[in-house]
Amino acid sequence: MTRTVKDSDMNGTPMVRAEGVHKSFGAAHILKGIDLEVAPREVFCLIGPSGSGKSTFLRCINHLEKINAGRLSVDGELVGYRQKGDKLYELKDSEVARKRRDIGMVFQRFNLFPHMTAIENIMEAPVQVGGETKAVARARAERLLDRVGLADKAGHYPSRLSGGQQQRVAIARALAMEPKLMLFDEPTSALDPELVGDVLDVMRDLAQDGMTMIVVTHEMGFAREVGDALVFMDDGVVVESGHPREVLTNPQHDRTKSFLSKVL
């Protein structure tokens, strides 16, 4: 069953802390002041209608998007900036890249590297970024492939794998850098229904191991069963938050109710 978040974790530094985060693309105001905290070892689910800003917020966490206002920090350190006194300094590209190594990300469209085999995809970052030897990286890549149930697909190019298999390789690729936080951007939305289960199994297994996960999802069953916290976003703001079972079974706001009535 779901793990209960330990009190000691809650009292420590949150893994992610957002305070009044705003983001706009030109005239489009996507995030209108997001405040939330994600505790270590927590499975944090983000739900909401499309265009509500959940994916954008996720991409802000590893600085794929720059926020316009507010403060966003991961493990106590600001994302994309360094604070000296009351001044903010933008981080260099190399510093941003170094911080991203600790944050794994899984995309809706998998984004595997098509010119590399499954195992080469997983080895790429440890060898190129982590400076590991190929032998060490290969050994861990094999373990990770085994963990996601694809040990026999190591030499396959992504074009020869099904969507579900590609997404599991993508999860293994993100895990290869041994991140302390995993971001999932609608990981099952591009999959055929019968392939969703395998991917969710891998994510459930990961949650059991105590990985901190932020999951943008439409899988309410997964959120209810595995999630420790859930946030409903709409139109760039957090409408409602709480424990998944409470929010999903007993929503308080009208917008949450109308959204859930459409998806459940």
Partner: peptide, 15 residues
């Protein structure tokens, strides 16, 4: 998405 995936893994622009 390829560039984003590489950046998310911590790879620099040049790499």
């Amino acid at each position: 998405g390829q560039t984003e995936a590489a950046h998310a893994l911590g790879m620099s622009h040049g790499r």
